[in-house]
Amino acid sequence: MSSQNVYILGIESSCDDTSASILCNGHVLSNVVASQKIHEQYGGVVPELASRAHQQNIVPVVDQAIKQANINKSDLSAIAFTRGPGLMGSLLVGTSFAKSLALSLEIPLIDVNHMQAHILAHFIDEEDFDKPEFPFLALTISGGHTQIVKVTDHFDMEIIGETIDDAVGEAFDKSAKILGLPYPGGPLIDKHAQSGNPKAFPFTKPRVDGLNFSFSGLKTAVLYFVQKQVKENPDFIKENLEDVCASIQYTIINILIDKLKKASKETGIKTIAIGGGVSANSGIRKSLKEGEHKYGWKTFVPKFEYTTDNAAMIGIVGYLKYLKRDFTDMSIVAKARIKF
């Protein structure tokens, strides 16, 4: 192996997906994700079950990633892992494994902030994919987070707006649950919304100061609206599912785009990048593209497989930190809540 090649093993275990990825000089050689189906019957992630499944999955997933990359573990330059934020039990599995492997291979250990990784996924070396230029605004939208981040450099980030209650992913999933859709319901709302009328049922948008978001009121509004309609017509959901999903999605996207417009105006930044699991939503992607014509934005949307929780995004942060020799030591501990 050529000595100038930097091979990073990325490990992601913040929630219910166990993932391992190998990157060579910022280019993805493998990105293996083991999803946990067990949570579907509970309608949400059960932390205790998630950490047990990570323990079962982590060795085969890492082994698979190394094999698919066609390298040996002795070729690895460093190991990057998710330190937080996330579920404590899940984080502990990834952290302990990364520390043990780094110790046994005598290579550097790199801790990664999960939310920074969603943003820096844009810097994975991919053909036909442009990287955003600094400074840019990042909208990170997931099941646990909704943030607008001003990104001045790879590791110079400032949260300028965030949710004061629920995350956008939770608003999608809870609305889906109210409609009787299985977990995770966000992608199903997106699917049904495609053939619905987004203006069929107007939902009011919350008034929140500055660049912050709120989604709990919308969730309650959807609940009361559906309960009222079902009382009058027991078949209401079945007869209007597409239109209700389209209306919910339309309202959520409007809330996000309105705040982005405000952030862009206030900062003067017209380069916008999105990240996080909810950025897989087709309506959000479409609205962002429309923003290029409407507001003169330059927008960046990561590849679908880099939007949800995956280790390639952990690996790219690991690579960028490796170039700066920004390593951690064995005293590092996982943290469920962590800021930039």
Rank of each mutant, 00 (worst) to 15 (best):
residue 102 A to S: 15
residue 238 K to N: 14
residue 121 A to Q: 11
residue 135 P to V: 04
residue 296 G to D: 09
residue 184 P to R: 04
residue 185 G to R: 00
residue 1 M to S: 14
residue 275 G to Y: 04
residue 187 P to W: 10
residue 143 G to A: 08
residue 63 D to H: 14
residue 239 E to V: 09
residue 19 S to Y: 06
residue 179 L to H: 02
residue 152 T to Q: 13
residue 320 L to A: 01
residue 146 T to Q: 05
residue 310 N to P: 14
residue 338 I to L: 13
residue 94 G to M: 10
residue 188 L to P: 01
residue 217 G to T: 09
residue 279 S to D: 13
residue 268 G to E: 13
residue 138 A to Q: 06
residue 335 K to V: 07
residue 32 V to L: 13
residue 188 L to W: 08
residue 79 I to D: 01
residue 204 T to N: 15
residue 245 C to T: 02
residue 204 T to L: 07
residue 220 T to K: 12
residue 168 V to F: 03
residue 216 S to G: 13
residue 320 L to K: 01
residue 185 G to D: 03
residue 15 C to K: 06
residue 173 D to R: 08
residue 333 V to S: 11
residue 250 Y to W: 11
residue 37 K to A: 13
residue 86 G to N: 04
residue 256 L to N: 01
residue 327 F to M: 04
residue 15 C to E: 12
residue 50 A to L: 11
residue 310 N to M: 11
residue 7 Y to L: 15
residue 297 W to C: 04
residue 57 N to L: 14
residue 139 L to Y: 12
residue 169 G to R: 01
residue 171 A to W: 02
residue 204 T to P: 10
residue 142 S to E: 04
residue 261 K to G: 04
residue 85 P to T: 06
residue 302 P to G: 04
residue 187 P to F: 11
residue 56 Q to I: 06
residue 340 F to H: 09
residue 298 K to T: 12
residue 246 A to Y: 00
residue 299 T to A: 05
residue 136 F to K: 00
residue 197 N to W: 13
residue 88 M to T: 15
residue 193 A to L: 00
residue 290 E to C: 00
residue 11 I to F: 08
residue 96 S to I: 10
residue 33 V to P: 02
residue 60 P to C: 08
residue 294 K to I: 13
residue 2 S to W: 03
residue 76 L to H: 01
residue 319 Y to V: 05
residue 316 I to C: 06
residue 68 Q to W: 09
residue 57 N to K: 15
residue 333 V to I: 08
residue 237 I to K: 01
residue 216 S to N: 14
residue 127 E to D: 15
residue 249 Q to E: 15
residue 70 N to P: 05
residue 120 L to F: 02
residue 194 Q to D: 08
residue 276 G to F: 03
residue 274 I to F: 15
residue 216 S to F: 11
residue 39 H to W: 04
residue 201 F to C: 12
residue 3 S to T: 15
residue 93 V to M: 07
residue 121 A to E: 09
residue 308 T to R: 03
residue 103 L to I: 08
residue 39 H to F: 05
residue 140 T to M: 14
residue 31 N to S: 14
residue 197 N to A: 12
residue 55 Q to S: 10
residue 280 A to E: 11
residue 312 A to N: 12
residue 269 I to D: 05
residue 169 G to F: 02
residue 265 K to D: 15
residue 187 P to M: 06
residue 209 D to K: 13
residue 241 L to M: 14
residue 144 G to Y: 00
residue 310 N to K: 13
residue 322 Y to E: 07
residue 108 P to Y: 06
residue 194 Q to N: 07
residue 152 T to A: 09
residue 278 V to D: 03
residue 153 D to L: 09
residue 22 I to Y: 03
residue 320 L to T: 00
residue 75 D to H: 11
residue 204 T to H: 12
residue 207 R to M: 08
residue 7 Y to A: 09
residue 335 K to P: 05
residue 216 S to L: 09
residue 291 G to N: 01
residue 201 F to W: 05
residue 129 F to I: 08
residue 146 T to S: 12
residue 233 N to P: 07
residue 117 A to E: 02
residue 98 A to G: 04
residue 158 E to M: 06
residue 278 V to Q: 04
residue 193 A to I: 01
residue 333 V to L: 09
residue 189 I to H: 00
residue 308 T to L: 07
residue 223 L to N: 05
